[in-house]
């Protein structure tokens, strides 16, 4: 999966959780301060990221899920560890 695919997939996951259009999920929009996500929705995003990318996120990395850009970094780190 290339960076564009990762970005589009994550954007869709985040938009669904925030109940907004995918276009509204800009690269640096802060999940809590700007997209009105809460801790429960962030956990839901983490669960969907795990299923979609077939990875298992460590709890410490959940704190890094603060924007689309940060989420791409986290997802790609795990995908690289997995070897895809």
């Amino acid at each position: 999966m290339d960076t564009n695919e990762v970005t589009n997939t994550l954007r869709k996951i985040i938009a669904e959780a925030a109940e907004i259009e995918p276009e509204a999920v800009t690269m640096d929009a802060h999940f809590i301060k700007e997209l009105d996500l809460d801790s429960m929705l962030l956990l839901e995003i983490a669960a969907k990221v795990e299923k979609t990318f077939k990875v298992k996120l460590e709890e410490r990395d959940l704190k890094e899920l603060t924007s689309l850009r940060q989420s791409i970094t986290v997802a790609q780190k795990y995908m690289a560890q997995r070897g895809s």
């Binding site: 801790s39 429960m40 956990l43 839901e44 983490a46 669960a47 795990e50 709890e59 959940l62």
Partner: peptide
């Protein structure tokens, strides 16, 4: 449980 962390779960 689908996702569990130290302070929350789904």
């Amino acid at each position: 449980a689908d996702k569990v962390v130290s302070t929350a779960a789904i």
